[in-house]
Amino acid sequence: MIDLTVETKSEIELYCECIRYDADAPTLVLLHGFLSSSFSFRKLTPFFKGDYNILAIDYPPFGKSEKSSSYTYSYHNVACSVINFLETRNLKKVILIGHSMGGQLCLQICKRRPDLVEKAVLLSGSSYLAPMRPSVRTATYLPFFPLLIRWYLGKSGIEKNLHNVVYDKKMIDDEMRNGYLEPFLQKGMFQALGRMARHFEGDLSEDDLQVINTDCLLIWGEHDQVVPLSIGKRLQKDLPHAQLIILKEAGHLIPEEKPEEVYNYIHDFLSK
């Protein structure tokens, strides 16, 4: 019997919600986007409950994961923490589903441990970002840098950010506002974001992507303003085994905007 407890301790403590567990069912591992949490999958997961195990992970430093002053918040290290989570539970051949930054983490895991992954689904997955500029990396060592991050994010505000990630602004309600605001209320969040900026090494290169042999499904919103559709089309060319689905009247937050459509495409992809 696999022990699927709520939290795991590796070099940092990850929070994971196990929505269902059946030893004979395939396992979905959900990885949310930047400045978000597993809350972003709340409309999508109910569609999978009947046929799949669902592990929705808050990777560091987001959601209910640990905020550490000594952890290295690089893609490499976060991906290794997720890999360790899977290994300590003897999970193999999982299906990775990543939104935005979570999509890049899926690719990082596929590159490092392809044996652990059956298939991968990228929902508006971020890619092709350059490493952090040396000037910004240096600035992260200043004691007031976390306050600067807090000021910058507070300047835009939750309302403006939500308007930027959805196509239909009428869908924004108090549940969304409160759910996406919650990660910023966690103690140590802004200090951890400062360390994340310091450690950001950039996305996988074209050469890295071209050696990933995992079957990948790319689902993109036609009107994505955060990770534009051009990124999805470029990924489709660089990944050897990828297909791209474009959702009409959708922005960046497609698990919220088009959960049933997203489910149907993923279910068809996994059923082949």
Score class of each variant (00 low, 15 high):
Ile172His: 10
Ser36Phe: 01
Ser70Tyr: 13
Pro46Asp: 06
Glu206Trp: 00
Met176Lys: 09
Ser135Leu: 12
Ala79Trp: 04
Glu182Ile: 12
Ala250Lys: 02
Ile231Tyr: 09
Val166Phe: 06
Asp22Ser: 10
Phe190Arg: 10
Leu209Ile: 06
Tyr152Glu: 01
Gly50Met: 07
Glu256Gln: 13
Phe200Gln: 00
Asp238Val: 00
Leu14Ile: 06
Ile212Tyr: 01
Pro60Ser: 14
Ile2Gly: 02
Lys169Ala: 04
Lys248Phe: 08
Lys119Gly: 03
Thr45Val: 09
Asn264Trp: 02
Met1Glu: 12
Asp115Leu: 06
Phe200Ser: 00
Leu185Ala: 07
Asn77Ala: 11
His99Asp: 03
Ile97Ser: 02
Lys155Asp: 00
Leu91Pro: 04
Glu182Met: 10
Val166Arg: 12
Phe184Lys: 08
Pro114Ile: 14
Leu91Arg: 10
Pro146Asn: 06
Ser156Trp: 11
Tyr71Arg: 05
Tyr15Asp: 09
Leu235Lys: 10
Phe48Trp: 04
Val262Asp: 07
Pro143Cys: 08
Gly102Phe: 11
Val82Pro: 08
Ser38Gly: 11
Pro134Glu: 12
Leu244Glu: 01
Gly154Ile: 09
Tyr265Gln: 08
Leu4Tyr: 11
Gly154Cys: 09
Ser70His: 15
Leu28Cys: 08
Gly188Ile: 03
Arg177His: 02
Asn178Tyr: 14
Leu142Thr: 08
Asp168Lys: 11
Lys67Tyr: 01
Tyr59Arg: 00
Ile231Lys: 12
Tyr52Ile: 04
Glu13Asp: 03
Leu229Thr: 03
Glu261Asn: 13
Arg177Ala: 01
His241Glu: 11
Val226Asp: 13
Leu247Pro: 14
Gly221Thr: 00
Asp168Leu: 09
Glu66His: 03
Tyr128Cys: 05
Tyr75Ala: 01
Met1Lys: 10
Ala23Glu: 15
Glu261His: 13
Asp203Gln: 04
Arg113Pro: 13
Phe200His: 08
Leu153Gln: 09
His223Pro: 05
Glu182Gln: 13
Leu181Arg: 15
Glu17Ala: 11
Gln104Asn: 14
Ser10His: 14
Arg133Cys: 13
Leu122Gly: 10
Tyr265Arg: 04
Lys160His: 08
Asp51Asn: 15
Glu249Ser: 12
Asp224Gln: 04
Glu7Lys: 15
Thr72Ala: 01
Phe47Pro: 10
Arg198Ala: 12
Leu30His: 08
Gln191Leu: 00
